[in-house]
Design a protein around this nucleic acid. Structure first.
Lengths: 302, 302
DNA sequence: TTTGTGTTCCTTGTCGATAAAGTGCAATAC
DNA sequence: GTATTGCACTTTATCGACAAGGAACACAAA
């Protein structure tokens, strides 16, 4: 079948949450911006909602008839796009499965395993190859380079170069730049999570991503900003499956972040560089430790 | 049609050059390594050569009957793989054609224009997107970000960071590392070309690529090494269509290279850094100048 | 016992087809 | 007159099909 209608299903679910009995849904173009899809999809949603008696639709009036029930929602797993599914499956295989460096990756086999066509797998692998974990042999298979210590070192080396550059650029941002406001928002969010660290330590990942992206943004350099995607995906999957000492680790990291943020606020380059280096080397260390911890179990380190 | 047999045609052409009348071609596996293809392809070549009377083939003897003529060769343009064709066409469009930043790129239109299927175009665009010149809007078109001064600046900024790091690592290579031999070979090649600069200035591009790749290699970092692909493609196409002052520019660059090489040989980090900075800022300048020179004509600069 | 060949089978690169999703224009409602 | 809707049309995402090309293995030759 060409295209699962995941865009529709996901938007439909999100649209269900906008329903307020008695009121009318906004106009089609407004729903488009609200849901981030095209009018065609919005109209499909509206038609479907008429079908299931959620709304009465007559020209410009889209009166909500009843609140949505659990049964109205599409199941979660039907709402994620194919590429997300492939990514999850693939990362699981290479980070958790017994994936040794040098292993061959077979498009057809992967496609069969996931139950999809080869085209999607190929496109995923091509996109994924920029992360430096796999390499193509033309007219032949892909080779897994492996999530090894070597990889982690190369990754963090570049990360440090880029982040130092970005942090230095951040300090030079004009005082009225929106990044400063966002930085203060982030600082508060950090403080809040830290105040309740025992139950909220898992929220650190999201904060980490937001803070570092904000800083990279200041570099105004697409290569630096894009590179953060690699960091993000590695940390995302790695920590997702590796929760040992997470609370302790995240608590420490939040404190480092707070120091880092404070240093940025002073706008003193030396203070920023010091805080940045401190945090990055600690992040590197924790990545390395979790790598060696799992190396024998999963066989992913070299 | 699925797959043009470009691998076969290209290998066939290269195999023709191995023919020596009276002698026998080597064994199949040997031909495989010589031509860099699989036995299946080698055997297709041999069958075809029997067909056209170039060889007599009986088990292990593959006696050459006659020298190949012009007519035996497949035309050059049939030997380049589809992705190479797309790359050329696409680069021509965005570097030479009237390609303004923000322009939409349409997979279907591009495919029709080149006369190929959409799959190949899609895959090319995905691969190409890592160069930061285009960006995908999911479920919709691609956006051309344009070969602008901004792009060139972001590119060269990262380039400088990486090359300084690599050059510093180069100095620390052990004395018996093969890179030192290769460096000396390259120095001689530079000197030779320079001695006859008026007629050989076009050979600079190849030398440039070899020298910089050799240096990046010393970083032992896949992200740094891979990044050079972006530099390479930009310089390749840009200079190919922009030959103003090429002789003068290349002559100057060769001298800078020679200084750079000499500095590396001294193994003194400060000398290396100085020579490296000098050359890179001169390369940046010349890229920028050629950009502004063509900006109005082709509308590619912002 | 190693190296080369014949043969079979599997995978990759490319195409065309099709449902899902996006885009543009003319008609309509306010 | 502007914003919204209805409708026709285009493009994208995905599949299955198939020739080109790679890989494995048993047999043959040296």
């Amino acid at each position: 079948m060409p295209k699962q209608n995941t865009v529709f299903k996901d938007a439909y679910n999100r649209c269900l949450r906008l329903l307020v009995v008695g009121e009318s849904l906004p106009s089609e173009p407004e729903l488009c911006t609200l849901l981030g899809v095209s009018r065609t999809t919005v109209r499909s949603i509206l038609f479907q909602m008429v079908e299931t008696g959620l709304i009465e639709w007559n020209k410009r009036s889209k009166a909500v008839q009843r609140p949505p029930t659990k049964a109205d929602f599409f199941p979660e797993h039907e709402t994620s796009s194919l590429s997300e599914v492939i990514e999850r499956m693939f990362m699981q295989r290479i980070l958790m499965g017994s994936a040794e460096p040098g292993m061959q990756i077979n498009e057809l086999e992967l496609a069969r395993e996931i139950g999809i066509g080869t085209t999607s797998v190929r496109e995923f692998l091509i996109r994924f190859s920029r992360f430096g974990l796999i390499e193509k042999r033309p007219n032949s298979h892909w080779v897994l380079k492996g999530f090894t210590r070597q990889f982690a070192e190369e990754l963090t080396d570049v990360r440090e170069m880029f982040e130092l550059k970005s942090a230095a650029a951040f300090v030079r941002l004009p005082a009225d730049h929106p990044a400063w406001t966002e930085l203060e928002t982030l600082r508060r969010a950090h403080a809040e999570v830290f105040a309740d660290i025992d139950s909220r330590y898992l929220e650190f990942s999201a904060l980490d991503d937001r803070l570092h992206r904000l800083i990279q943004q200041a570099s105004d350099n697409r290569f630096i900003i894009d590179f953060y995607d690699i960091i993000a995906i590695v940390f995302h999957y790695h920590y997702q499956w590796n929760k040992a000492n997470a609370r302790e680790r995240n608590g420490k990291a939040i404190l480092e972040h707070l120091d880092y943020i404070d240093a940025l606020k002073t706008r003193r380059p030396e203070a920023v560089e010091a805080a940045c280096r401190l945090h990055l080397s600690s992040a590197r260390l924790s990545l390395m430790q979790s790598l060696s911890a799992t190396s024998t179990a999963t066989g992913v380190a070299q």
